[in-house]
Design a protein around this nucleic acid. Structure first.
Length: 465
RNA sequence: GGCGGCAUAGCCAAGCGGUAAGGCAGAGGUCUGCAAAACCUCUAUGCGCCAGUUCAAAUCUGGCUGCCGCCUCCA
């Protein structure tokens, strides 16, 4: 394959991709804060990093992917108070929910999934080192990172410290900080009943940015190849990660910084705080996981993506077309695909090698689909189908699986099917055509569906095993 | 206020100097008992607006207009 180019937000340029220790690649992406069900925005992010990792692996790189879970956060604590549960339990509930969603979307498990709560001692060490080096200072039970001790603060945001300060003029300054851009590494508790952890500086909680730096350092050491996340994390989150990590090690923290674009709803960013979000679970009630993935892949990962029902339905229809091209695929005929010489693989790889242009890569899948549908020669057709399966797999699409959530099947298929059969049965009974009405009930019984007639032509059904 | 991004058919969207990929939707036709799927044909002389550079611009430059993001938690 020809060279891979990736857009690096550090330099704001598309650069030739050259990992630190080829063929190994280390990639860290920011995962969710687990205080509620994940929404389509989280789905886009997860799917984006998933297909990028899959593609890198398909070209021979040995990728180690880490995606964290933020399980210490004020939002988790607030939610816990709201529903009267322990914050730790809230975190576990929504971590589980997130995992369910990832499975439904066909997102592979990352190689490491560190939780903030598991890395507290590493965070303490990290802070201690920074204090020792004079890069951080303790005020009462808080510890702050000193931005003036950081070399290129603002490099990722693309603004100088002076320019950043202007932005901060709108914010009420924290009088404890020496410099208004300084940020908390450790926040001491104000009330002794607060959810907190015992640290060398007293009870408190870690600053948000710290966990990613400490986890990265602990898992991968001083430098990684790629750090990813949503583009809303560029400042301050990623900027601060760079400041902390590079102040500690003196090395470049991440060689490449990649950011996915936001999901928009009616022109506004989808966000919990905007109240304009659609959860992944909701979306999967009307469309398959494959469809949601195609919807995401259809737009380049760095562009904003507007979420509409029309858009995901269009994606579902696109998936249907791809899947139908696989009808009559004989898996037993083996897969004779030679990915080294296959012209479609080549074309696909060239698109993907240009900063992961999945939108363009998808057109190759549809081109193959056209050819499958017109190919008369069985052997050639089988080859084309094998190619389609392979390439869709690189993008994480599972075309040989309907990939529909149980909720989808229940709501859109089963309920309607039973309703229709029963209204047919009711009609038959009204016409005293009992042979037909009994036949319909037999069909349902054969499907383990037991129907009970209720007064006023109502009914209920249940599964009887 | 500071910084950054985006504007391409009915909808989504790629293209990044050589004369508009792809998907969805739509129209007509073939096939079919009727459908569905599939196949064939059609659907932007034009890429927000105005100038400029060039043999050549959606693509480069400048200026407008509109929308969005970050600077506060956020994928």
């Amino acid at each position: 394959m020809k060279n891979l180019f990736v857009f690096n937000n550090l330099t704001k340029n598309k650069e030739k991709f050259e990992p630190l220790n080829p063929p190994s690649i280390t990639i860290y992406t920011c995962g969710p804060t687990v205080y509620d069900h994940s929404h389509i925005g989280h789905a886009r992010s997860a799917i984006s990093w998933d297909f990028i990792v899959r593609f890198l692996r398909s070209t021979g790189y040995k990728v180690s992917w880490t995606r964290n879970i933020t399980d210490i956060d004020d939002k988790i604590i607030n939610k816990a108070k709201e529903v009267n549960l322990h914050p730790d339990k809230i975190a576990r509930i929504y971590t589980h929910s997130f995992h369910e969603d990832m499975l439904a979307l066909g997102v592979e498990w990352p190689d490491f999934e560190p939780h903030a709560t598991q890395y507290l001692s590493q965070m303490y060490d990290f802070i201690n080192e920074l204090i020792k080096k004079g890069k951080a200072y303790q005020i009462e039970s808080d510890v702050y990172f000193s931005v003036s001790a950081s070399k290129n603060y603002g490099q990722l945001k693309g603004q100088s410290v002076e320019e950043l300060e202007k932005g901060f003029e709108r914010i009420e300054p924290n009088p404890k900080k020496k410099h208004k851009l300084d940020f908390a590494l450790w926040k001491g508790i104000k009330d002794k009943n607060e959810y907190s952890f015992q640290s060398p500086w007293g009870k408190g909680r870690p600053g948000w940015h710290l966990e990613c730096s400490a986890m990265n350092y602990s898992i991968y050491g001083e430098s990684i190849d790629i750090h990813g996340g949503g583009d809303d994390l560029i400042f301050p989150h990623h900027e601060n990660e760079i400041a902390q990590s590079e102040s500690l090690t003196g090395k470049v923290f991440s060689k490449y910084w990649m950011h996915n674009g936001m999901i928009m709803v009616d022109g506004k960013k989808m966000a919990k705080s905007e109240g304009n979000f659609v959860t992944i679970k909701d979306a999967l009630r009307s469309v398959s996981g494959n469809a949601l993935r195609l919807f995401v892949l259809n737009t380049h990962y760095r562009m904003p993506l507007n979420y509409t029902n029309e858009g995901v339905f269009a994606a579902q229809n696109g998936i249907n077309r791809l899947q139908e091209a696989l009808d009559n695929y004989e898996a037993s005929n083996g897969n004779m695909l030679n990915i080294e010489t296959n012209e479609f693989v080549k074309e696909f790889n060239e698109s993907m090698a240009d900063d992961f242009n999945s939108s363009q890569a998808l057109s190759v899948l549809f081109k193959i689909t056209d050819l499958i549908n017109t190919e008369k020669n069985k052997k050639k057709k089988h080859e084309l189908q094998s190619t389609l399966i392979y390439l869709s797999g690189v993008l994480g699409l599972d075309l040989q699986n309907e990939n529909l959530s149980p909720n989808f099947i229940r709501k859109n298929i089963l309920d309607k099917l039973i309703d229709n059969l029963i209204s047919w049965r009711t009609e038959s009974r009204e016409k005293k055509d009992y042979a037909s009405s009994d036949k319909i009930r037999d069909i349902l019984n054969n499907c383990r569906i037991e129907v009970k007639d209720l007064p006023e032509n109502k009914y209920k059904w249940q599964i009887k095993l």
